[in-house]
Structures are given as structure tokens and as C-alpha cells.
């Protein structure tokens, strides 16, 4: 009698613990996905801002090629976007930017903040994908209903401005396959 009660109690406690762990893990997976999606929206907004700033600068002076690159980046379909953004980065690196000029400064600032958004997005996508790859999470399909968060694999968009000391940010994070 006594030992039966003990077994029942023990099993109940175990079930409760497992349930609590599973609920916590499911919440964690959902939270990480939500955050990766927010980061992707912020990254998208910063990409648009940079392209817009580059287009303004191109209209003012650097002309057709830069304007075309900015336009292509703004209009790119999702699967072509990474290449288009890298192309815009290359175009911007090719022109001389004077921090004293407002249009140039807007591009420099937008690039700097884009670099941060990219860094944060990469980290958060990695966290979300790591959580989702765990065997238990896969087995119980805790991420169902959500797309796998995708890396946005572009070069570091930081522009070096004359007079600034390099800080090693340009080393970037090794790109991961998607």
C-alpha cells in the first residue's frame, strides 16, 4: 500500500517535471523565433534606408551606376536580394565619401547601423536555429507553424572613412550556409 502510494507520487512528480520542461522549451523556441523575425524586420528596414540614402546621394552626384545599384537593391526579389545588397556595398566602397557632406554622412551612418542590424540578426537567427535543431524540439515539432529563420548572408557593409582607425569590425562573421 505504502510502496504503491510512493510509486504513484514519484511518477506524478516526474510527469510534472517533464511537462514543465517541455512547456519551458516550447516557450523558448517560440520566443527565439519571434525575436529572429523582429530582427529580420529591423534588418529589412535598415537595408531599405541604406539603399534610399545611396539613391539620394547618386541623384546628387555619383550618377547612373550607383543609382542603378541602389534601385536594384530596393526592388530585388528575396532570392536576389543578398547579391544586390553586396553589389550596392561594392558600389559605395568605390565612391569617395566625405563625412562633412550631409548626403554622404547619411550613407555612412546608414551603413554603420546596417552593419549592427546585420550582426544582431545573424546572432539571433543562429540562436533560434540552434534551439530548433535540438533532437527533442524536432521530435515534438515545437517549431511547427513557423518558418525556419534564414540567415541573410551579405558582406559587412561598414564603410571605412578616411581618418578613422580600423577596429577590426570588417573581419565579419564567417557566413553560414542556409
Amino acid at each position: 500500500m505504502n510502496s504503491t502510494a510512493g510509486w504513484v507520487l514519484g511518477t506524478a512528480v516526474l510527469v510534472a517535471l517533464v511537462a514543465a520542461y517541455l512547456a519551458w522549451t516550447a516557450g523558448r523556441v517560440q520566443r527565439l523565433h519571434t525575436r529572429a523575425e523582429s530582427a529580420a524586420r529591423a534588418l529589412d528596414a535598415h537595408l531599405l534606408r541604406r539603399a534610399a540614402a545611396a539613391a539620394v546621394l547618386a541623384e546628387q552626384r555619383y550618377g547612373v551606376e550607383l543609382y542603378a545599384a541602389a534601385r536594384i537593391a530596393l526592388d530585388a526579389a528575396p532570392e536576389e536580394r543578398e547579391a544586390a545588397e553586396n553589389d550596392l556595398t561594392r558600389q559605395l566602397r568605390g565612391v569617395e565619401l566625405d563625412p562633412a557632406d550631409p548626403a554622404c554622412e547619411a550613407v555612412i551612418a546608414a551603413s554603420r547601423r546596417l552593419a549592427l542590424a546585420r550582426q544582431v540578426h545573424t546572432d539571433l537567427v543562429r540562436d533560434a536555429r540552434a534551439a530548433r535543431s535540438r533532437p527533442l524540439v524536432r521530435l515534438l515539432r515545437m517549431g511547427r507553424g513557423r518558418e525556419w529563420p534564414r540567415y541573410f548572408d551579405v558582406d559587412d557593409p561598414t564603410l571605412t572613412v578616411p581618418g578613422e582607425t580600423p577596429t577590426g569590425e570588417g573581419q565579419g562573421v564567417p557566413g553560414r550556409s542556409r
Binding site: E37, S38, A39, A40, A42, A45, R113, L116, Q119, V120
Partner: peptide, 14 residues
Amino acid sequence: EVYAAAIEATDGRV
């Protein structure tokens, strides 16, 4: 700027 990036990545607005 890093604070701004963190806030943006949390609620998705710039």
C-alpha cells in the same frame, strides 16, 4: 548605436 540595434531587433521597428 548598439542599444538602438538591440531595441530594433526586439520590436522590429527602426
